[in-house]
Amino acid sequence: MEARQRRPAPTKDEPAEPIKKVASESTSSSVSVLDILRIAGGILLFSSALSYLTTSGASLTWGYNPWWTRAAEWKNIFKPPVSLTDDELLAYDGTDPDKPIYLALNGTIYDVSISPATYGPGGSYHFFAGRDAARAFLTGCFDVDAVPDLRGVEQMYMPLEPWEKPLAADASDAEKAKHAALEKRAREKRKAMTKGDLKNRSAQELRKARQSVRDGLEHWHQLFRGDKGKAYRKVGEVKREEGWLQKLPKRTLCEQAEKGRPVRKYED
């Protein structure tokens, strides 16, 4: 009869097998996906609450308002984009209660129906409704520039020479004297510049002016697509035939935009 093989008794330095197994399980620090989601959700909830309190209830996302956080944008995914000519766009100026109120900015159509008191009949900005008035958004000449033609509008950001900026008719003697001194110094500085220097300066100023036009338009695009918290949204594009812009007569800067042009400064 075979003798039973006895398991060696555990030494003082090594616990019995069942005890080792329990100890191993109790010291396990594995984290499940559910735990991670709970932690992330708690952080987001806390951040949203803090944003709400900090901004006095204006935002749950610290002012960050991308398209994917807006319900209206998700609804647009299931709707075909609007495509209208400038003439067709006129029918969406708010005078027909069965149609939404649209306005366009540099070819992009936005729905501003949420603000009928502003863009509807009798509203303070009704002249924007039903049309693309991109030029007026930049020049501020709402009565004459409610058109999409942006040609030459960068000139409003191009600086004038001091002698090209007329003084006000009621300027004081002190103002006239200061203007004359400034003009004299500017003419001397300009005379000392080479043709290459003048050409490079003009090119740099033109690039900055064109960037100012893009920045100005982007400011309004952000408003109308809802980035600034307004419940407006993009719905489509204006369709125009090729070469439409060349068929229009070129415009000059309106009086307000011309008056607002900066004066070129010459360093001493």
Rank of each mutant, 00 (worst) to 15 (best):
S113Y: 00
P100S: 06
G63F: 05
E175R: 04
E255Y: 05
D149T: 07
Q211I: 08
S51Q: 01
Q222R: 14
E164R: 07
F46R: 01
K265G: 10
A9R: 15
H179Q: 10
S29R: 15
W74S: 09
A168I: 03
G63T: 05
L182T: 12
Y119N: 00
L90W: 05
V235E: 02
S24W: 15
A174K: 13
P159H: 01
S59E: 01
Y64A: 05
D227Q: 06
P10C: 09
P166K: 12
D35E: 14
P80L: 15
G63C: 04
G107Y: 02
W220I: 03
V33A: 14
I19M: 15
I39N: 10
K176E: 08
A174Q: 09
E258F: 12
R38F: 11
K176F: 07
G260A: 15
N106S: 07
A169L: 07
D227T: 06
L167P: 05
D197A: 11
R185G: 03
T95V: 09
G229H: 03
E161K: 11
G196E: 11
S30W: 10
A58Q: 11
W244I: 02
L138R: 04
H219V: 09
R187F: 02
G226I: 02
V153F: 03
D93A: 09
K99G: 02
A203G: 02
K247R: 15
A40D: 10
V153H: 00
E237T: 13
W68H: 10
Y102G: 00
E154L: 04
E17A: 15
R187E: 08
R185H: 10
H219R: 15
V238A: 01
S26I: 13
P116T: 00
K250G: 15
M193L: 09
A104E: 00
T85F: 04
S48R: 04
K259S: 12
L37R: 12
K228H: 10
W62D: 05
F137P: 04
D149N: 10
A171C: 05
R38G: 12
Q5D: 11
V33H: 12
S56I: 09
G216E: 04
F127N: 08
K99I: 04
P121Q: 03
G42S: 08
M1S: 12
D93S: 08
S202Y: 03
S124T: 03
F142T: 09
E242S: 14
P249N: 08
A16I: 11
C254G: 13
S202N: 08
P249I: 07
K189W: 05
R261E: 06
T55E: 02
M1N: 13
L90A: 15
I19R: 14
M193F: 04
S51T: 01
R151V: 10
V238Y: 01
R261V: 06
S30P: 02
R135N: 05
